[in-house]
């Protein structure tokens, strides 16, 4: 059975705001293709202040779909609709103390129902902007569509590269076969053949030939490039110190204390090494403090 948090169970067994709202003036009907779940969100919005006075849900779906719907209505009640639109699926998942990766789409469905309801209130047509594919990497909840698009956009040709760009495959490795299949398909489209023994982004020179200042700036630039990936997961990274081949960084937000932090550091290290064209080691800031304390 799924490893649901106590909060998910509580919202499933005793859902809040179940049923349609009387006198609703906004309705959002959405469904999730991958699961067959569907949700109708009804809102009563005050036309003056545009505040959500009441919210109700009707859900055809599993335990986490019902819990996500219940959480969504609790979060948005009393909010201005503009503020409510800022609620992300991660916020819904966080409110429930997390969802299993396979069930994250339940929270996405909640966010989409909200967008659809607000569009309905404003007399607009809601257009769905994301396509969801089969879940490939369960460690980091990355689906096939995301992997395929990333491979296509960046001309990727190895599993390692896919891991660096999307994180898919960076955990237990069980999905490597699946990633290879997508690589084969996309590379075939562009007239190439997938080579399982190819190495990702060859590192050419042992040193970069940059001045210290140039090198520092380059490191900042490279970190800037991967920052959006981390921010997508509510995390971030900060450069602390550069000491020769040792680069110390601080993980912030969701990245701090994340059990996958070492994998993330590995990804940052790879990106920096490739960008600088030299062998470097990325270490957590705590390591700098430890080394200083040891007088190293």
């Amino acid at each position: 059975m799924w490893d649901y948090s106590e909060k998910v169970k509580e919202h499933f067994f005793a859902p809040r705001n179940a049923g349609a709202v009387d006198g609703a003036n906004a309705v959002g009907d959405v469904g999730s293709l991958s699961c067959g779940d569907a949700l109708r969100l009804t809102l009563k919005v005050d036309p003056e202040s545009e505040t959500i006075l009441d919210a109700g849900f009707q859900t055809f779906g599993c335990g986490s779909a019902i819990a996500s719907s219940s959480a969504l209505t609790e979060i948005i009640k009393g909010m201005n609709i503009d503020a409510a639109l800022q609620v992300s699926n991660q916020d819904i998942a966080d409110y429930l103390d997390g969802l299993p990766p396979e069930k994250m789409h339940c929270s996405v469905m909640g966010r989409e129902a909200l967008q659809a309801a607000v569009a309905n209130y404003r007399g607009e047509e809601w257009v769905d902007d994301h396509e969801e594919g089969a879940l490939i990497c369960k460690c980091f909840a990355v689906d096939a569509v995301m992997i395929e698009e990333t491979i296509r956009a960046n001309d990727l040709s190895t599993v390692e590269e896919v891991t660096n760009y999307t994180k898919a495959g960076g955990g237990c490795s069980a999905c490597h076969e699946g990633i290879e299949e997508i690589l084969m398909k996309v590379m075939d489209e562009r007239g190439e053949t997938f080579d399982p023994t190819a190495v990702a982004g060859e590192i050419k020179k042992p040193t970069s030939g940059l001045t210290n200042l140039q090198r520092m700036k380059r490191i900042e630039e490279l970190l800037e490039e991967i920052r959006p990936n981390l921010q997508r997961d509510h995390g971030d990274v900060e450069l602390v110190e550069v000491d020769g081949k040792y680069i110390y960084v601080k993980m912030i937000g969701a990245c701090a204390g994340c059990q996958m932090a070492s994998t993330t550091l590995g990804g940052i290290q790879q990106h920096l090494a490739e960008g600088l064209g030299e062998f470097i080691q990325v270490l957590p800031a705590e390591e700098l403090a430890r080394r200083a304390a040891m007088g190293a």
Binding site: D29, G31, S32, A38, A116, H130
Partner: peptide
């Protein structure tokens, strides 16, 4: 509900 598939026809993503 009457004609369930029509009365509730959500957008699938």
């Amino acid at each position: 509900v009457e004609e369930p598939e029509k009365a509730f026809a959500p957008k699938y993503a």
